[in-house]
Simulated assay, not measured.
Amino acid sequence: MILALCITATAPQADTRLTPWLFDLQKQFTECINTTDTPYATCDDVLGAGFTLRREIGYALDTCLSIDIKGCATAFNDAGFPAARLNIANLPPCTMLGRLEEIDIRYLPENNCIEHIADTIERDNIPTSHNTDISCSIGYVACLEIVGQSKRYWESAVRIRHLDRLAAIPGSADFANDPGTGHRYYSLLERQLRLQIDLAETTCNIQTVMPHRANTRDYEECMGAAYSSLWQQMKPAAD
């Protein structure tokens, strides 16, 4: 294992929490939306599972930095991960984060050990019993971030599907003899999406401005659901 810096040691205060925005779960999200009939709730669960898996691996690895290999294996077993099957004692070269109490984590380095172990578990469907809780109580940064991450992924999925629809218009047989109508159809689709997003934003704002309801998490969750609905409406008939 190779020790690597996450940020300079002069950071004013270390943030020892591993939160969702630290991890890139785009691959897990994309696989989910392409393989389920109920994408919004199901894929939110996938994002939560991907995050908590990596969070708990990160904390187990943090323990490993202050103990020997045998103790590291014990730390993984205690955290709900099968150390022997993961071959924790003989990991291939990968990058550690450093002690969480001493660094301020802003990004994960390339070839980091957290992602290496998580990929192995997900790829091989290795059973685990790690902590999967995402607290939404006071100091609920992880709860807020996972909702925001979901909304961002859904928004991106809508933009991609929208661009695919637009890209298909110039070569469509429907407009081969009438390019003017094709251009108008293109413009209408653009306007339709803008209006649909405007309506969703207005609706979600209305739901969160009532007394005692103003809440960033509620708004992000509402918009995530709205983007998911738009994505499904735009789904090609042949899918």
Rank of each mutant, 00 (worst) to 15 (best):
V158H: 03
R184W: 14
A157K: 04
D178L: 13
K151E: 08
P179I: 15
Y185T: 15
S135T: 09
A142Q: 04
P170E: 01
R165W: 04
S137A: 10
V147P: 01
G139E: 02
V147S: 02
S172V: 07
G180P: 02
Y140E: 09
L163H: 12
L166W: 01
E155F: 14
L144I: 03
R161A: 12
K151N: 07
C136N: 08
R152D: 09
V141A: 04
S156P: 10
Y140S: 08
H162A: 12
G180Q: 10
L144T: 03
I134H: 07
Y186P: 05
Y186H: 12
R161T: 12
Q149T: 10
I169A: 00
Y185G: 12
I169C: 00
Y153L: 14
S137C: 04
W154R: 04
I134V: 11
S172A: 07
S150W: 03
C143Q: 08
R161M: 11
I146N: 02
L144P: 02
K151R: 12
P170Y: 05
D133C: 01
A142K: 01
P179F: 14
S172E: 03
A142H: 01
V141P: 02
K151C: 06
V158F: 02
Y186I: 12
A168R: 08
L144A: 04
S137Y: 05
S135M: 05
E155C: 14
A173F: 15
D178P: 12
D178F: 14
A157D: 11
A142F: 01
W154P: 10
G180S: 06
A176R: 15
E155I: 14
Y140M: 06
T181P: 13
D164Y: 07
S156R: 09
R159H: 10
G182A: 06
D133S: 08
I134Y: 06
I138W: 04
Y140L: 02
A173V: 15
A176E: 15
D178R: 13
